[in-house]
């Protein structure tokens, strides 16, 4: 009877090698792949913190576009601190936000004031948070009567209102039309939550945040953080980053202009070039565009 040779025991080295190859390496590869394929999601914060006019609305539009393009961004918080402004730019922002809402949640956060156009804009968001002392409402519109330009023998226009583009009657109708459209916007967005009649709302009063909540103009008292958390919950994400889209767009915008780099601190003020050793900038650097929450 031939004795079978004893089975060769794998050496410790082979065992470790096997574990590395069959377990650690695939996991590491998977991890690296996951980091690439599943980036950390983010909540984008769009900031409306100026009066509303064409340029500011354009800038907000860029922020919204950034949110749309950035695949990491899964929800947006529109942080409003604006007394309102021009009608057309306001409507432009409102529509952009409404379109974005078809793709991701848009949550409103009112900091100091969301009056008039500021309030109109945040109507595109749902839900809306406000501070107890925020100023909310001021529904309506105003404007200057068109000037009455006389007839003379120096200027010739093709129509009586060619030079003014309006007259008193049409102007009144325009004001009334915008007001009604504003009220209707509030009505459809707030729905049953609205506890104030449109007639009363048309007075144009602005309300403190808490009263605004009682009237159904906003949903909850809360800070921007609360709004971000709510946006994350609506988007179904956890462990997210918060991206301040204003700074991102601003940095890109300034970089595109070419006169300053997206770094601040001890850079050359004229060229943006860093002239010191990198470590020496640590105290000054402000990383734009990403802060973790």
């Amino acid at each position: 009877m031939t004795e079978s040779p004893p089975k060769k025991q794998p050496s410790l080295f082979r065992l470790i090698l096997g574990l590395v190859f069959w377990l650690a390496l695939p996991l590491a590869a998977g991890w690296l792949l996951a980091r690439w394929a599943v980036p950390t999601p983010a909540i984008g914060v769009v900031r409306l913190n100026t009066e509303i006019y064409a340029a500011s609305a354009q800038f907000i539009g860029m922020e919204i576009e950034e949110a749309r393009k950035d695949s990491r961004i899964k929800a947006v918080v529109i942080a409003v601190d604006s007394p309102g402004g021009e009608v057309a730019p306001t409507q432009s922002m409102y529509m952009d936000l409404l379109n974005l809402r078809r793709k991701m949640p848009v949550v409103g956060s009112i900091d100091g004031i969301a009056a008039s156009g500021g309030f109109y804009t945040v109507m595109a968001a749902d839900p809306i948070f406000a501070r107890p002392s925020s100023t909310v409402g001021n529904v309506g519109v105003w404007g200057f009567f068109p000037s009455s330009i006389g007839v003379n023998d120096s200027v010739l226009a093709s129509g009586p209102f060619k030079l003014t583009a309006s007259n008193n009657e049409q102007f009144q109708q325009e004001i009334e039309g915008i007001k009604r459209e504003f009220l209707e916007t509030v009505r459809v967005h707030r729905g049953d939550r609205l506890k104030i009649s449109l007639t009363d709302l048309s007075q144009g009063l602005a309300y403190p945040g808490r009263q605004a909540m009682d009237l159904g103009l906003v949903d909850q008292m809360g800070s921007e953080t609360d709004a971000i958390e709510k946006a994350a919950a609506l988007a179904g994400i956890a462990h997210y980053d918060v991206v301040d889209l204003e700074t991102v767009v601003l940095a890109r915008y300034l970089a595109a202009l070419g006169f300053v780099k997206p770094w601040s601190g001890a850079a050359d003020p004229e060229t943006g070039e860093r002239k010191l050793l990198p470590g020496l900038y640590l105290l000054y650097d402000v990383r734009l565009g990403s802060t973790r929450r």
Partner: peptide, 13 residues
């Protein structure tokens, strides 16, 4: 596994 873990870590809903 890491892919799925990461996905569900970030996207519970």
């Amino acid at each position: 596994a890491p892919l799925a873990g990461r996905w569900f870590w970030f996207h519970p809903g």
